[in-house]
Design a protein around this nucleic acid. Structure first.
Lengths: 159, 159
DNA sequence: CACATTAACTGCGTCACGCAGCAGACTATA
DNA sequence: TATAGTCTGCTGCGTGACGCAGTTAATGTG
């Protein structure tokens, strides 16, 4: 039997997204090596700079999937490297606010900008409608992934 | 000044793709925990099952970014868990072919299928043209990431 | 005022990883 | 054919990121 066009498109997207995600993991690792950091650290910096305000250690732990203990160590490394700064929270004195150091993070951004030209060219080839389609799909996929992750975490292991 | 629609779309896509990729990393980790494996192991299985034929240890090393030594250990773990099988290559007796064990990998796929219903629903909302746009973008982004990764690896570190 | 809950931190053990070195198998040049 | 060079996969070894469990301090609740 011949597959429908739609079925073929599903298969293609499934394969391409896997390769796309695998490529990202590799790129993230290469970027981390280049900066002398770990993949987790780069991930954390990416999240920190994506948020408007500073994050607490607990929030970083949740967003990276680490325990609070490991998140403390993660912030230790970033602080030692001068990438972030700790500030005690005045509202809740148990909390510690972690904010990126603009000057230092700019060095990371510099590497990004260096590569950004090629991305710009890639995006320029898209129509505005196409950009919206892609963005919307990623937002939906993000929400779904997030929900499924929590679903998996709440479930008992099959072992 | 007010930003152009295009500039806004670029920013949106930049932010959404970061969140999308971060969500994938988290999901992958949660899936690995659920199966009692490591994130790298799941990544490797995903790549193995995506390829039509078996891969050599060297190929796995390249596709995951590990050294050949670590790749050997990775295959050791997967083999011990019964997920893959080693077969000596008849053409080149230095090589070892690594193939997924269908029976065992099916258990991983079962978890995927369980979650796949929601993905199906998400994709069903897309038109076929939209699916093509997304797939094409991911393929282009994959190629670009791959090129940039190699570019980063060839460059000396700023430290 | 007890009591539970939460945030961040700290010792400790585990184990994935890179590094460096190894043997065996292929390849090229003479 | 000989022999040097290259490639593949494997193995000791040390490092360090991580989870776990317990601690301290601050907040919330009866």
């Amino acid at each position: 039997m011949t597959k429908s066009r739609r079925a073929r498109l599903y298969e293609e997207l499934s394969m391409e997204s896997r390769r796309y995600l695998a490529a990202y993991v590799l790129f993230n690792q290469a970027l981390a090596d280049h900066l002398g950091l770990h993949a987790t650290d780069v991930q954390c910096l990416s999240l920190l700079t994506a948020e408007p305000g500073p994050l607490t250690v607990k929030q970083i732990a949740d967003m990276t999937g680490l325990t609070t203990g490991s998140a403390t160590r993660l912030v230790d490394r970033l602080e030692r490297g001068g990438y972030v700064a700790r500030t005690p929270d005045q509202q809740d004195r148990r909390r510690v606010l972690v904010a990126p150091v603009p000057d230092r993070v700019a060095r990371v951004a510099a590497v990004w900008d260096d590569l950004g030209v090629a991305w710009q060219a890639l995006l320029d080839e898209h129509t505005e409608d196409e950009l919206e389609v892609i963005t919307r799909h990623m937002r939906q996929a993000h929400d779904l992934s997030h929900a499924q992750m929590q679903h998996l975490r709440s479930r008992p292991k099959p072992d």
